[in-house]
Every structure is written in C-alpha cells, then in structure tokens.
Design a protein around this nucleic acid. Structure first.
Lengths: 190, 190
DNA sequence: GATTTCCGTTCATCATACTGAACGTGCATT
DNA sequence: AATGCACGTTCAGTATGATGAACGGAAATC
C-alpha cells in the first residue's frame, strides 16, 4: 500500500479559531486591539476567529506574540485540558506496604503552588467564577453528593470519589445537584 | 507606553526550515516523497527547507502529518527537554499513613508504554546509544554509584537517588563514574 | 555508454490570504 | 437627542504563497 498520497489532512481550524477567541477573551483585549498589537488587520483576525481561512505562519505567530502565548497553545491539545478520573479508575502508585493504595490524580508541575479548599454547597447555589491568572488549574475531588463542575459551557457531572481537573483561567462553575455536597478543591498556580 | 504596535514579530523560519530538513532526513524520505505524501508540490517544500517564504498553516500541517510529528516539533525550542530531580527534591505524594513518602517523578502520558530495565555499569564503560524512535523518552533513577547520563554533549551527573529524564530520539549516553553503579532505566514510547 | 528514473531547484502562472475602507452597532459623553 | 468613539463585520483590490512544468545532475538499469 502506498502511504497516503494526496490526503487533504484537514487542519483543526475550528480548534484554532476557538483558541484565538478563548485566549483573547482571557486577556480582556478587544479584537481591534489584538490586531493592532499583532500588526495585522482587523478583518484578518475576524476571519480567523470565525474559523474561516488558512492563515500564514507569520500571521499566526504575530497573534501568539500579541496574546503572549506559546504557539502550541493554539494547536497541540484542544487546550481546555479537562481530565476526569472516575472513582476506582486511575493508576495506583505501587507501595511496598501491604494494602496501601494511592491513586495518582495529577502530577505537580515543578514550582507550582497548590492551595487546598474545602467546599460545602447546596443545590440551587451556582458558584460561577471569573477567570483567574493564566496557567491556573483547578482540581476538584468530590467527597459526597453530586455536582456539575468545570469550564463554563462544558461542565462535568461528578459523583462521590470522582475527580476533575480543568483550566481556571477561563470562566468556570461549581453547581451542587444534591444537598450536602462536599468537595476538596485544589487551586494550582505556576 | 503603548504596547508594541506594529512590531514585525519575526517568525523563526530558519528554525522551522532546519526542523523540516532534520525530520525528513531522520525519516529517510526524499523531498519529493514527503511532498507527495503531504499533498503539496515539491517546489513549495524546497522553498520551505531553504528557509524562504511564509507557509500557510495548511501546508505546514500537511507536512507534519506526512512526517508523523507533532506540530510543536518544528517550532518549540531547541527540543531536548531535560528534567533533573535531585534526591530529596520533588513533590511528594501525600499519604494519610505514617511515614510513607512517594515522590512523583514523571506522570505517564496517556497511552504511553513504559519498559523497565536494570542497569549495572562499571567505570570506563561508556554506553552510547543511537537515537530511538521519535517521541521516545528515557527516565533514569540512579540507585547507587555515580554516572554521567543524558543527551550526548550535555549529560547530567547523577548521584544516588537522583533522577533525570531526556529525549532518547537523539544520541545519548550512560557512563558510570564509580564501580558498582546501578540504576533503573525506564524507556517510554508513545 | 546510452537510457531511464529519480533527485532537488528554478520560474511563470494561478489561487487566495491579507489589506484598508466602509459599514452597522452599542456605549459613553455632551 | 445628538455626538463621538470604540467595537466587530463585510467586501473589492492587491500582495504573495502554492502550483506544475521544465531544468540539470546523479544513480541505477539496460
């Protein structure tokens, strides 16, 4: 078999468009302002954020510089890197000791600080948070009850023992679904 | 001060050109063949490898697919991502139990396979390895002795308990400095 | 040694990404 | 209300990236 000749190899333009919108809204800048800083025209940026076109490297690069983000932020992972580990899932850390069992949920990036919070929430109370500083990640381990947690627009429903990590430099929510919902929240900043 | 209006923001085209040449030579494919697989013209690729032009995202993406490399491979910095964790350093995994203490060295990328090896080395014996497959990472945890480990040209000296991770798709070495040097080597492939 | 086949480069032509002005809109200010 | 000024979008013109044929050279095949 001849290896994929002429395969169009579609570019994740939609993902890039979303990334541009997300990063710009995070920075709080207007489309015009970003275009001005990047030295490109508003129309070009407007097109790109609409997911249309096929930008040149120069254009994308200028935008990354203007937004002060690494290039990979727009491409590599569909950035909102949301990870869910259900109760019982996850790799266990091997221990010589007898019946000790630790499940690794998230590795700590070196240099990161982690603050721990306890959350008590009741149904009907939706706690919506504004974006934090860039790079901030929140980890939530649900202790009891049920809750919708995560990035606004695509939250995850958690049950007891479930875990989720999501970027907290975009708007995010915590909404209890049943009474006496308790959780541990770890706020990680680089 | 108005924040950098109109700054040209130079693109690292030379670095990208070098990356294209490097990755293609690594794959052993001809320029024509890569162009054919990517579905672009030879002339375009020829220009890009010469560091000329300003490729569209579609073009670059197609090349990355054809070369089977992540996009960031062409842009990111001088690739070798080397991480050293000295004995005693590193984030410890919290345990309710008494004096148990686990230091997390590297979280496993999902889908990655990890093979574990035991290494026994004596001074004078320099073990130089040729590059493995792209994306392969080696982790070395030194058990006893001393050793120079890592990417050829910039190895790291390890003592007991020290840990290092380095890309193994470039030439790398393991050189024991004292007798009875032992280590655990984890070979990780995506 | 002539021929074939692939290699990588160069150049005129075409397709299109980018531009800049004009537009409708919403929010302050007067 | 009227005005001013940002915002984001649309559209015709233009700059330029991508193409495909033609090229010279090297290696394999006859």
């Amino acid at each position: 078999m001849v290896p994929e000749p002429q395969t169009p190899a579609k570019v994740p333009m939609e993902s890039i468009a979303a990334g541009l919108r997300r990063e710009r809204s995070r920075s709080g800048l207007s489309l015009s302002e970003v275009a001005r800083r990047a030295g490109i025209s508003k129309s070009t940026l407007s097109h790109l954020e609409a997911g249309k076109g096929n930008p040149s490297l120069e254009t994308l690069w200028a935008l990354c510089v203007a937004l002060d983000i690494p290039f990979s932020r727009l491409l590599d992972p569909p950035r909102p890197h949301i990870r869910v580990v259900r109760a019982g899932e996850g790799a266990a850390v091997a221990a010589a000791e007898s019946d000790y069992r630790a499940t690794l949920l998230a590795a700590s990036p070196s240099g990161a600080r982690r603050d721990v919070y306890r959350i008590d929430a009741e149904p009907g109370m939706v706690r919506a948070s504004d974006p934090h500083m860039p790079g901030v990640v929140e980890h939530v381990l649900l202790a009891s009850g049920r809750a919708l947690v995560g990035v606004t627009g695509e939250p995850v429903e958690l049950g007891p023992g479930d875990y989720v990590a999501y970027p907290a430099d975009v708007p995010h929510v915590f909404e209890a679904l049943v009474p006496s919902t308790r959780a541990v929240l770890v706020l990680e900043h680089p």
